[in-house]
Design a protein around this nucleic acid. Structure first.
Length: 787
DNA sequence: GAGGCAGATCTTTTT
DNA sequence: GATCTGCCTC
């Protein structure tokens, strides 16, 4: 039975899409129609009479899963195929088999902050001082070890890493606390399920048979735990189809192993392999640039991206002078593009770290360009949201000590640290959860009358609300009851508008709205999977616990998208800006130690470039204000590597006068790729008339780039830089405040002020026309003095 | 026990 | 720059 649209697939795509039984590896380059192949394959399986409920499609983000579901529905209508993230899939499996790992099906999923708080309690319990081992590092170490499927017994502290020793000591205690609280952290979701499969052969066989056809997207980013789960479910029925691209592996830091995809054929010797190398997304120039860059990675399977597309615009590499100018320039360009008829949603700005978004946001806001910062966890990280969610968690899982501690004294009930310590000690002696102990507060010695009463009241309140919770088939009314009966809403309303002008009440109302939406969608459709939490509250909690940053991105909204390189995986935009491509930021300074990590950073840039359909603009700034300090940066080595016939070099720091390129403190000849590379010479960016790198004092350490950006050092280099720049060409014109000037693009205006001296001084111009007020580096000569 | 302040601390990427 | 921590006072 031919499926709609299957004729539109190319030969390789069709091969992959119509594959039915046996292992399948699809190596899919960027823009090669991977999602299309996966959705068509699901449709094809169904058309072959395979029950939808025997098919599982796993991805890494809810967004990807939703997209898959939507497109499958488009082909063959809504299906009972289980589609979701690894974590959600694991959460549901675990719910059905919680007993096997010592939990109940009502277990709580702790978000990372709560998990860290438990870890702290574990440390306190052991009397460990955390002054020399930051809690985040310990949490990270344990998390990483879990994803590697290690245990406290098999985990081997690395030599010279004291944090490892502490982590190993802490880990079992942490795990005990979690178990006692009937809770899991994110990593446990995967680890528990992996254990479930390895320790219970019968269950494994049953689940293997049940999940007959498994598809895994972004397989290059699976870690050991995920690998174990997938493998465990496809032994008797090895109909495992994985898609991925080793060149887009960007989660090594979180335990993902490229090995999984590189050695798929060894794991499954009968695997059918399909390569999708034809790109349908980007122009030839964009692809060529990406190809040129990724060729610098040594640990990869060679692959060539091919396209029939026209060359298109060359990829632009812009050397800006400051981070603010970079942001202003990009905002100007986007604003201009929008004026010229583009939609804001055609634009995307990518950066390495979230902290880099601020200047861009400011610049866009200043020009009235609508944007969307794709960082959705923000909402669920808000204190008031976490408080309310904790209440719900506690209703479902009374042993959730972390939730208890979060809400027991919010609003203030007169229960302080002292009382809670007494409660904790007593609870532990009697092997009770804190909430249960609170219900017997009268029996706890040492508690003040006031505290005992408050705890008792709290326990009663919980009991009353619990009764309502178990009867409720809708979350929203329950949420309302919680807000009213706990006094939380009244308390918020009282001092709700906080210092930041944040309307906490509105945030909570938004959560209520979300609950209503879930209620409605559940009323519309019965639960699909068997692991679906039968009750509304469970479903709500699972959703709130497992939502991610990128999930909030609304592709339909008319806004410019701002996100990290990581978050952009799987997306595409007509115009893409890659910002802050500077040494130390991208590649990140923490990745310079290790060649593997440097290659991962390079893949990150590869992912970024290949998001672009029509235009890609990469940029760096010589002076960057970042994390409150100013630092001098050198262009990223990746910009050099990208440079070729498909790119064009521009920007105020670019040649002519190309000596600036080597500015900053970078005197290491090995890193002088800008002037050294053949491509650069071809582009006319050859050696400049004046080699300023000679001026760098010999005392400047040249080779190791691990610069700790201490303020003194930044000042010192800035000063020496200014000195050197003093020797550069004088500004072409002399300016004075109050003078009238003309700009080629913005027309005439008044130079209202000048800040700084020398060629780098900045003038503020109030234009007569719609351009408003703008700033210019006077030395660039863009302003023509009038009169 | 609560609330406010100053200082320290630390910042990659995320389910 | 922002957030958390610990310390102080009421």
């Amino acid at each position: 039975m031919p499926l709609p649209g299957i004729a539109a697939l190319n030969e390789s795509q069709r091969q992959a899409a119509t594959h039915v039984d046996g292992p399948l590896l699809v190596l899919a380059g960027p823009g090669s129609g991977k999602t299309r192949v996966v959705t068509h394959r699901i449709a094809h399986l169904i058309s072959q009479g395979i029950p939808a409920r025997r098919i599982v499609a796993l991805s890494f983000t809810n967004k990807a899963a939703d997209e898959m579901r939507r497109r499958v529905a488009e082909l063959v209508g809504p299906q009972a195929v289980e589609m979701g993230t690894f974590h959600r899939f694991a959460a549901r499996l675990l719910r059905r088999h919680a007993r096997l790992v010592g939990l109940t099906s009502d277990y709580s999923i702790l978000e990372p902050d709560d998990a860290t708080a438990v870890l702290k309690r574990a440390a306190r319990k052991l009397g460990l001082s955390l002054t020399h081992t930051p809690i985040d590092r310990l949490a990270g170490t344990i998390s990483r070890a879990k994803n590697d499927l290690l245990t406290p017994e098999t985990f081997e502290p690395r030599w010279g890493r004291p944090a490892d020793e502490v982590a190993r000591t802490l880990w079992p205690v942490y795990q005990e606390l979690l178990l006692a609280a009937n809770s899991v952290d994110f990593d446990d979701l995967l680890v528990h399920v992996a254990r479930l499969l390895t320790d219970n052969p019968d269950l494994r066989a049953e689940l293997d048979a049940r999940h007959r056809y498994i598809l895994v997207d972004e397989y290059q980013d699976t870690n050991a735990a995920q690998y174990c789960i997938v493998r465990g479910l496809s032994i008797d029925h090895p109909n495992l189809a994985v898609t991925g691209d080793p060149d887009q592996a960007i989660y090594g830091w979180r335990g993902a192993s490229i090995r999984n995809i590189l050695e798929f054929e060894r794991d499954y010797p009968t695997a059918h392999v399909v390569k999708l190398e034809r790109n349908y997304r980007s122009t030839a120039n964009i692809l060529g640039t990406a190809d040129r860059l990724i060729a610098h990675n040594t640990r990869r399977k060679a692959k060539h991206l091919v396209t029939d597309a026209a060359p298109g615009e060359r990829v632009r590499i812009v050397l800006d002078s400051t981070s603010h100018e970079e942001a202003d320039r990009i905002a100007d360009e986007i604003a201009g593009g929008i004026t010229a008829g583009r939609s804001p949603r055609e634009y995307c700005i990518l950066f390495r770290t979230n902290a880099l978004s601020r200047s861009l946001e400011l610049a866009l806001r200043g020009r009235g360009v609508p944007y969307q910062l794709v960082r959705g966890l923000e909402f669920f990280k808000r204190r008031e949201i976490r408080d309310v969610v904790a209440w719900l968690r506690l209703l479902r899982n009374p042993r959730d000590d972390e939730a208890f501690l979060r809400v027991v004294n919010v609003p203030p009930r007169g229960v302080g640290r002292q009382s809670l310590d007494l409660l904790a000690a007593w609870a532990e002696d009697h092997h009770l959860g804190r909430l249960e102990a609170a219900g017997r507060a009268a029996a706890i010695p040492g508690l003040s009358k006031r505290a005992a009463r408050a705890l008792g009241d709290f326990a009663r309140l919980h009991r009353d609300l619990s009764a309502e919770a178990s009867a409720a088939d809708r979350v929203a009314p329950l949420l309302q009851a919680v807000l009213d009966r706990t006094g939380y809403r009244a308390w918020l309303a009282d001092d709700g508008i906080d210092e930041a002008g944040e309307d906490r009440v509105a945030n909570v109302e938004e959560l209520v709205t979300a609950a209503q939406q879930l209620d409605e969608s559940r009323a519309g459709a019965p639960p699909s999977g068997d692991g679906d939490p039968a009750d509304a509250l469970g479903a709500f909690l699972e959703t709130t616990a497992l939502v991610a940053d990128t999930d909030v991105w609304d592709p339909a909204s008319e806004r410019v998208a701002l996100m990290t390189f990581h978050a952009a995986k799987g997306l595409e935009f007509p115009v893409v800006y890659l910002v802050a491509m500077e040494d130390g930021i991208l590649p990140h300074e923490r990745s310079l130690d290790h060649p593997d990590q440097l290659e991962e950073e390079r893949r990150l840039v590869f992912v970024g470039i290949t998001r672009g359909m029509q235009e890609v603009h990469a940029s760096c700034a010589r002076i960057r204000d970042y994390r409150g300090t100013r630092r001098i940066s050198a262009p990223s080595v990746f910009l050099t590597e990208m440079t070729g016939t498909e790119t064009v070099l521009t920007g105020v720091e670019a040649p002519p006068g190309g000596a600036d390129i080597l500015s900053g403190e970078d005197a290491n000849p090995a890193r002088r790729g800008w002037l050294g590379s053949d491509e650069a010479s071809q582009l006319g960016t050859g050696p400049a008339e004046e080699d300023i790198s000679q001026d760098v004092p010999a005392s400047e350490p040249a080779a190791p780039r691990r610069r700790k950006a201490s303020p003194e050092r930044a000042l010192e280099t800035a000063a020496s830089l200014a000195e050197r720049l003093g020797g550069l060409p004088k500004p072409r014109h002399a300016y004075a405040a109050g003078q009238r000037v003309r700009h080629a693009e913005y027309g005439e205006g008044v130079l209202s002020g000048i800040s700084g001296v020398g060629p780098r001084s900045v003038g503020t111009v109030v234009f007569d026309g719609p351009a408003g007020t703008r700033k210019f580096i006077l030395g660039h000569g863009a302003l023509e003095p009038l009169g």
